[in-house]
Simulated scan of single mutants.
Amino acid sequence: MVRTGLTAQRLTRGGAELADEVGFEQVTVSALARRFGVRVASLYSHLNGSQDLRTRIALFALEELADRASAALAGRAGKDALVAFAEVYRDYARQHPGRYAATQLRLDPETAAASAGVRHAQLTRAILRGYELSGEDQTHAVRLLGSVFHGYVSLELGGGFEHSAPDAGQSWSRVLEVLDFLLRNWPEP
């Protein structure tokens, strides 16, 4: 019997909130059942196990992040767009560390192709067109930006910058300035 009020969407949102509280890797169907005060079996009419739950959280977080990035990029170009895009990622990771971790979940190719991950790549490429990058250079730059953003945010979330000066926010600003400079002066192959 399906418990009234429980839906896959409600459970996904509850799982995303739980991920922010306890960490994405700690999210299981059992933990979610405890959160909702129900038996584990009650969730199996909506979910196909913990991996299904984690995938749903990842898709939810990717969509949420893509929506924020799209809104931030509207009407922006060049460095302004780059900084807005980067700030969305950093802010999201700091506000929702579990959801941000979920965005890094490796999805199967079919699920990935239908996810908001495609929008993230399109948004990044739109920024790079403002720097007149195309083809392979654009792909290299997409990978560079993803690596820098994810690397910086991961180190920051892990406490890697807590006990050193200057402030992590100052370093972040400088990193974005350097990325803008690099993109404007992209070397020829």
Score class of each variant (00 low, 15 high):
Met1Val: 00
Val2Pro: 03
Arg3Phe: 02
Thr4Cys: 00
Gly5Asp: 03
Thr7Phe: 00
Ala8Trp: 08
Gln9Lys: 06
Thr12Asn: 06
Thr12Glu: 04
Gly14Ser: 05
Ala16Val: 01
Ala16Asp: 05
Leu18Gly: 10
Leu18Val: 05
Asp20Pro: 03
Val22Ser: 00
Phe24Glu: 06
Phe24Met: 09
Phe24Thr: 04
Phe24Cys: 07
Phe24Ser: 07
Gln26Cys: 06
Val29Cys: 13
Ser30Val: 06
Leu32Pro: 11
Leu32Asn: 13
Phe36Arg: 13
Phe36Leu: 03
Gly37Glu: 10
Val40Ala: 14
Leu43Met: 13
Tyr44Ala: 14
Tyr44Leu: 14
Tyr44Ser: 13
Gln51Trp: 12
Asp52Asn: 14
Asp52Ala: 11
Leu53Cys: 12
Thr55Pro: 14
Thr55Phe: 14
Ile57Ser: 12
Leu59His: 15
Leu59Val: 04
Phe60Ile: 07
Leu65Ala: 14
Ala66Trp: 12
Asp67Gln: 14
Arg68Ser: 10
Arg68Tyr: 10
Ala69Ser: 15
Ala71Arg: 13
Leu73Arg: 07
Ala74Tyr: 04
Ala77Ser: 02
Ala77Asn: 03
Ala77Gly: 11
Asp80Ser: 05
Ala81Glu: 03
Ala81Ser: 01
Leu82Asp: 02
Leu82Trp: 07
Ala84Cys: 10
Ala84Trp: 06
Arg90Cys: 08
Asp91Trp: 05
Asp91Phe: 06
Arg94Tyr: 02
Gln95Asn: 10
His96Tyr: 06
Pro97Leu: 01
Pro97Thr: 03
Tyr100Thr: 02
Ala102Asn: 00
Ala102Gly: 02
Ala102Met: 09
Thr103Asn: 05
Gln104Gly: 03
Leu105Cys: 02
Ala112Tyr: 07
Val118Thr: 11
Arg119Val: 00
Ala121Thr: 09
Gln122Ile: 09
Thr124Pro: 04
Arg125Tyr: 01
Arg125Cys: 06
Leu128Trp: 03
Arg129Tyr: 11
Glu132Gly: 05
Glu132Ser: 01
Gly135Thr: 09
Gly135Ala: 04
Gly135Val: 08
Glu136Phe: 00
Asp137Leu: 13
Thr139Arg: 12
Ala141Trp: 06
Val142Gln: 15
Leu144Thr: 14
Leu144Ile: 00
Leu145Phe: 13
Gly146His: 15
Gly146Thr: 09
Ser147Lys: 12
Val148Asp: 09
Phe149Trp: 10
His150Ser: 14
Gly151Ala: 09
Tyr152Trp: 13
Tyr152Ala: 15
Val153Trp: 05
Leu155Arg: 12
Glu156Phe: 00
Leu157Tyr: 08
Gly159Ala: 15
Phe161Gly: 07
Phe161Trp: 11
His163Trp: 03
His163Arg: 13
Ser164Trp: 01
Ala165Glu: 09
Ala165Asn: 09
Pro166His: 13
Ala168Tyr: 08
Ala168Lys: 11
Gly169Gln: 08
Gly169Phe: 12
Gln170Trp: 08
Ser171Arg: 03
Leu176Lys: 07
Leu176Asn: 01
Glu177Arg: 10
Glu177Cys: 01
Leu179Lys: 10
Asp180Ala: 02
Leu182Thr: 08
Leu183Arg: 04
Pro187Lys: 06
